[in-house]
Design a protein around this nucleic acid. Sequence first.
DNA 1: AAACGTACGGAGACAGTCTCCGTTTTGTCA
DNA 2: TGACAAAACGGAGACTGTCTCCGTACGTTT
Lengths: 202, 202
Amino acid sequence: MAGSTNDGERKPRTDKQRNRAHILDVAEQYFSEHGITGSLDAIAKRAGIGPGTLYRHFPTREALLAALLQARDDELEARRKAIQEQESDSAAALAQWLTAMGQWATAFDGLPEPLRAALVEDKSPLALTCQGFITTTDAFLRAAQRDGRARPEVRGRELFLGVLAASWAASAAMADESSPSALHHLLQAGWATPAERAEHLS
Amino acid sequence: MAGSTNDGERKPRTDKQRNRAHILDVAEQYFSEHGITGSLDAIAKRAGIGPGTLYRHFPTREALLAALLQARDDELEARRKAIQEQESDSAAALAQWLTAMGQWATAFDGLPEPLRAALVEDKSPLALTCQGFITTTDAFLRAAQRDGRARPEVRGRELFLGVLAASWAASAAMADESSPSALHHLLQAGWATPAERAEHLS
DNA sequence: AAACGTACGGAGACAGTCTCCGTTTTGTCA
DNA sequence: TGACAAAACGGAGACTGTCTCCGTACGTTT
């Protein structure tokens, strides 16, 4: 019995698992090309399956997105550990973590929108992921605050939302001469303490 | 040719003018209720006209929005003048102007999205409006920079985009205990100089 | 009041979302 | 292995929203 967690459940059909993986592959590429608002039926067609199959696996666009981001979650988790181990400076660690989240949030064009929505309607499959990131952000933030490197009144949720907002704006910023990360820098200037700020300006 | 100031243009039909005004009235209310992604055909139906008439007056959703915001543009312009006359402190003036834009950008739910899009595709009817606001923001910003109250490397376009981003995030922030204006404050801390910042913290 | 041109209205083509249900595939057990 | 039941598939089609085309109605001009 060791190793058998089977509660009288059937083993899932192999075609189901294969379809699921295939859908994720196709969706990953399709969303990369067309942004996250691309047609779901088109994804089904490209995957060679019917719309019904797609919707059975992923009832909503958010569910599909959540599954796609799952893989990247692990990647970000690894990055988090790396930062915590290698970076002894708490403010730098927080900055690196926010940068990492910013990159994660721009994995697909238009991604910040459903992420923000997930913060409000917590029935979204993305809500859990967001919550985890907020918790991690809070950990980094509190460390920086203990060291007097971040303003004490700032909260992790606000920073997460700020990162989302900066990523949202980035697609418009790119069209201009200003760096796409201009808002990320503004944001950093926002959470840092004056001492921290003066250091960055030097 | 001589003496004719008329460009050979006919005077517009009265029913056309009336329809236009009526559409704007209805759209204003409808967008207030359903956000800017509400159905255009529904607006036409509520206005008692056919879809064709709506689209003849306003070929795109952006054109309709631009017309709706026109009235508020005047209002904001008045506010700009009031700030310039009454507020002698350049940093406070900039802060007030950004606040005013933030309110303007949340006139309808979802408004920041097309505004950001207008910054990229300048064929949008909203692009002209945005450009004007960026120019005004630059004027306030430069005054504050001259007084050493705003960081010299910040640009008006970035601040405008930042205000949009903060307004975009505000709808998610409201659901939480954190103030909806938390990001606006973060943004202000971002553009202010350290001296300015210390003052706000006191 | 007749003629002219502008504007109206809505039918309908098109695209996307999502569901229902008959058909096919798969796993299980004799 | 064969047969049965459960699971999954696929696509037709209902529904919603966008946008256009063109016959009709109306306002303006002479």
